[in-house]
């Protein structure tokens, strides 16, 4: 058993210089069968993962076909009529596309600029704390908002910023004077509030992974640097930052795949009649047309488009990371 799991020899990769001929293919199939048998236990261990992905990720993708149909539930998948790219055409030429794209991208940019670096900064600051008790307690405290649901965050925002009784709104009004500002409803304040909420809720939780990376930095490096006369700033610049750079790159690539996800719950909860023009993003749009209006095909087409952009972004940023000399994700 145990010897099964340890490969005796690493199989050389197929020699590509030789032309693929019939006997060779046969041989290869034979090798494959032998290998499958030899590593059967490893393959068996792999199986649950494959089953999971096939069952819950790939099989449902069959439903994406309705993006190219005029899907009427009563007629079923096969009974509905094929319409080709009609829904995509409708999306790209429709009156909403420009606005949706702009809103989604602007929120994504704001997220990258303000929300993405925040955990790194906080993690670095926490890392510099020398009093362990303080560090631990601050760490725990900043995690807490992550566990509150968006519904609660939205209600809190409303309580704090409402024009009628909002504590912070009234406080700012007291300082600045003038006309009362309706932060919750006004279109101008929508994006700042969304970014604020994201910062408040996710920053603490995001520090975990960076703190773990920081804990892995060899303390001998710091000692050596101190011996060489490096100050706090120099140590940070030449040791800490390079040490967590791979983590930052991986996190950046992973984030890029979600750039088009604006966070349905948060946006939906913060949308009002006054700010809908800036609040509508692909995620909420899919909900409105799919679930509320029952235009399943159109909604699927929009979702599919969004998904494709996400894939392009992931591959793009991975490529970019490699070009810049970093190790990519794959």
């Amino acid at each position: 058993m145990a010897t099964d799991l340890v490969p005796e020899v690493v199989q050389p990769a197929a020699d590509s210089s030789q032309p693929a001929s019939a006997p060779r293919r046969k041989r290869r199939t034979k090798t494959l069968g032998r290998d499958l048998w030899r590593y059967r236990w490893l393959y068996l261990l792999l199986l649950p993962g494959l089953v999971y992905f096939a069952l819950f990720k790939y099989l449902p993708m069959y439903g994406l076909t309705i993006a190219f149909k005029d899907y009427v539930p009563f007629l079923g998948y096969s009974g509905s009529e094929w319409v080709g790219l009609k829904h995509f055409q409708e999306l790209f030429t429709g009156p909403d596309f420009g606005r949706l794209m702009f809103n989604t991208l602007l929120l994504a940019v704001l997220t990258v600029v303000f929300v993405f670096p925040a955990p790194i900064v906080v993690a670095l600051l926490l890392n510099e704390l020398r009093v362990n008790v303080l560090k631990r307690s601050v760490q725990s405290l900043v995690y807490i908002p992550h566990f509150l649901s968006w519904t609660i965050v939205a209600s809190l925002t409303y309580l704090l910023f409402s024009v009628d009784f909002g504590v912070i709104a009234n406080w700012i009004h007291g300082l600045v004077g003038g006309q009362k500002t309706d932060y919750v409803a006004q279109a101008d304040w929508f994006r700042p509030l969304i970014v604020l909420q994201l910062l408040w809720k996710q920053t603490g939780w995001g520090t975990i992974i960076y703190l773990a990376a920081l804990a892995g930095v060899d303390s001998q490096l710091y000692e050596a640097a101190r011996v060489d006369g490096a100050g706090r700033w120099r140590q940070f610049w030449h040791i800490t930052l390079p040490a967590i750079r791979p983590t930052i790159v991986v996190m950046a690539i992973l984030t890029s795949g979600h750039l088009m996800d604006s966070g349905f719950e948060q946006i939906w909860l913060m949308t009002t009649s006054l700010n809908r023009d800036v609040a509508d993003v692909f995620d909420t749009f899919v909900y409105y047309i799919g679930i509320t209006q029952g235009s399943f095909s159109y909604a699927t087409a929009v979702g599919l488009f969004k998904g494709v952009i996400g894939v392009v972004l992931i591959f793009g940023s991975n490529l970019l990371a490699k070009r810049m000399g970093q190790r990519g994700l794959f």
Binding site: P7, V10, Q11, A14, D35, L42, L47, L50, V51, A54
Partner: peptide, 16 residues
């Protein structure tokens, strides 16, 4: 490199 990608793909296709 224990399993070449191609073999892995075949295995995946089989179990799917």
């Amino acid at each position: 490199t224990i399993f070449s990608t191609r073999r892995l793909a075949v295995a995946a296709a089989l179990s799917t």
